[in-house]
Design a protein around this nucleic acid. Structure first.
Length: 479
RNA sequence: GGGGCCGUAGUCUAGCAUGGUUAUGACACCUGGCUUGGGCCCAGGAGGUCCUGGGUUCGAAUCCCAGCGGCCCCA
């Protein structure tokens, strides 16, 4: 089978497959001369923008106000919450000079915006009538990653959306966790992405949170890709940032808070990695930069009727879809096929003398590589049907792979074996960090957490120490 | 933090051990022609601080030193 370049398979050689693909399809150019910083090209930006729009739409619908906060905080503010600074201090960029002047108060570039947003919450939140208070912003954040960086997965600058909410009671904060899950799940499911919704073990929660839950998407190399997280902060931050409100009875109380973040570039990586195949990207129709491509197959002497037939179709379809007619004359149809397939265009229309003489078109669907014939009259209906089918089959295929990738393991060795086969291991665990560390050392994977969406009750003993298991957890390598 | 590998055109790469003419090839790019139902073919063209600096030498992509950059493995 023809491949994106030199027979690179996404499951056996994921890195090359991915790097080459995102470069050739003009999603990103990672040749920027500063490590960990990449250039997003037109197709990458288009895809990010589609994902961003949908997420923001849902956030606004549910009452999150759109705002934009500054890029910087001070080290004093940043250091306020003890756990928080411990978790992030090793990876923040610090501005120490401005012009020729050495700054007395160093500025910290946000790795996340709690310490930038919460001083403002203190000013804005006065009364129970102000609650719940919900805001969100789409910005780039900066983390000095020391591990190997990889475009879209792990960069030192990355685009995300972060939401921050404040509530009167712990119960309302819990309710908000559900709402955040609903919003994020919706966006991910509309992209056909499969993931595990996990409550992170205590030792791996967000720095400063009461607990954290995360969306871990599967990846062809077996590592999981954390695309979004939701943190219940309790009153850890409101205590130190003094975010108080006046209750109905006149007494004062600290707010309960949540923050949740959605990594656009990692979501895009998941779309590419989960749906793509050895011919390249396969995009869900809703976000595909090009949804329909028309490829004329001219024969000597018949060029004119074929081209005008194509133009007619293009005119009609361009009103409904992002539709391109590839009328390049110096490129053969075969080469055009490969080109648009790599770009993940869901539906292709082929028009040659055969179609023109019978008032038909040939439709090609990117996901299954199947061709069908359609009458010119109902081409729109047929494309609409195809798009729905394509989305459903992408989604189902991704879910199936996720299922096959997850295997039960009853010993450390079995975990090791599962991970070496690029799988995610499901184990029973006592809950002690010590056992998780041992597991990481001997099997190479991290305890990612227990299912948050469904209850999985442990029946046996911890596979590491043999004591009674407290949780059913998933173990995987991670980005 | 420890160890290893590698920097040659837009991309990938040969050459390097054993220094020697004009730095190899493929893809991509430009011009013209031919073709068109899966990457066709023919002819021509352009593109290089061989990562940077220093050293050895009659002569360095090649050897030595330093720096910068990238990748991988282990902790």
């Amino acid at each position: 089978m023809a491949a994106i370049a030199s027979a690179i398979n996404k499951f056996t050689n994921f890195s090359s497959w991915f790097d080459e693909l995102i470069f050739k399809t003009r999603i990103v150019d990672n040749r920027f001369p500063v490590k960990g910083f990449i250039v997003y090209l037109e197709n990458g930006m288009f895809l990010l923008e589609m994902i961003r729009r949908r997420l923001e739409e849902l956030l606004v619908e549910t009452g999150h106000k759109t705002m934009m906060f500054p890029l910087v905080t001070t080290d004093e503010l940043f250091a306020k919450e003890a756990e928080h600074i411990k978790g992030f201090s090793s990876e923040v960029f610090v501005i120490e000079k401005a012009g020729n002047k050495t700054l007395e108060k160093k500025l910290i570039i946000r790795p996340t915006s709690e310490t930038i947003i919460y001083p403002m919450f203190k000013l804005w939140i006065r009364s129970h009538a102000d609650l719940p208070f919900k805001i969100h912003q789409t910005v780039n954040v900066y983390r000095y990653e020391t591990k190997a960086t990889r475009p879209l997965y792990r960069a030192r600058e990355f685009p995300w959306n972060e939401a921050h909410t404040a509530h009167a009671t712990a119960a309302e904060a819990e309710e908000q966790v559900r709402e955040a899950i609903t919003i994020y799940s919706k966006v991910l499911k509309e992209l056909g992405i499969s993931y595990l919704l996990l409550k992170r073990p205590d030792f791996d929660k967000f720095a400063g949170a009461k607990y954290s839950i995360a969306f871990d998407a599967w990846n062809p190399d077996g590592k999981v890709n954390q695309v979004a997280t939701i943190h219940n902060l309790g009153r850890n931050f409101s205590k130190v940032f003094e975010i108080e409100f006046e209750q109905k009875d006149g007494s004062r109380a600290l707010v309960y808070q949540l923050c949740y973040g959605f990594g656009f570039s990692r979501v895009l990586a998941a779309v590419i990695a989960q749906h793509g195949d050895d011919r390249g990207c396969v995009f869900p129709p809703s976000i595909a930069p090009v949804q329909v491509v028309i490829v004329p197959i001219p024969f000597k002497g018949y060029e004119e009727p074929i081209m005008s037939y194509c133009k007619k179709i293009h005119e009609k379809l361009a009103r409904i879809y992002r539709c391109v007619m590839d009328d390049r004359e110096d490129v053969t149809p075969g080469e055009k096929f490969y080109h648009w397939e790599m770009l993940g265009v869901p539906v292709r229309i082929e028009v040659g003398p055969k179609e023109v003489s019978s008032d038909k078109v040939t439709l090609f669907r990117r996901d299954t590589l199947e061709r069908t014939e359609a009458d010119l009259n109902d081409v729109e209906t047929r494309i609409e049907e195809l798009m729905t089918k394509i989305f459903t089959s992408l989604k189902e295929r991704s879910a199936r792979i996720m299922e096959q990738m997850t295997v039960d393991a009853y010993s450390v060795d079995e975990v090791k074996k599962a991970l070496s086969e690029r799988k995610i291991a499901k184990i029973e665990w006592c809950g002690k960090e010590e056992c998780a560390l041992k597991l990481k050392e001997h099997a190479g994977g991290e305890v990612r957490g227990s299912r948050f969406d469904i209850a999985e009750v442990p029946q046996r003993n911890c596979i590491v120490c043999g004591e009674k298991a407290q949780e059913v957890v998933y173990v995987a390598k991670a980005y």
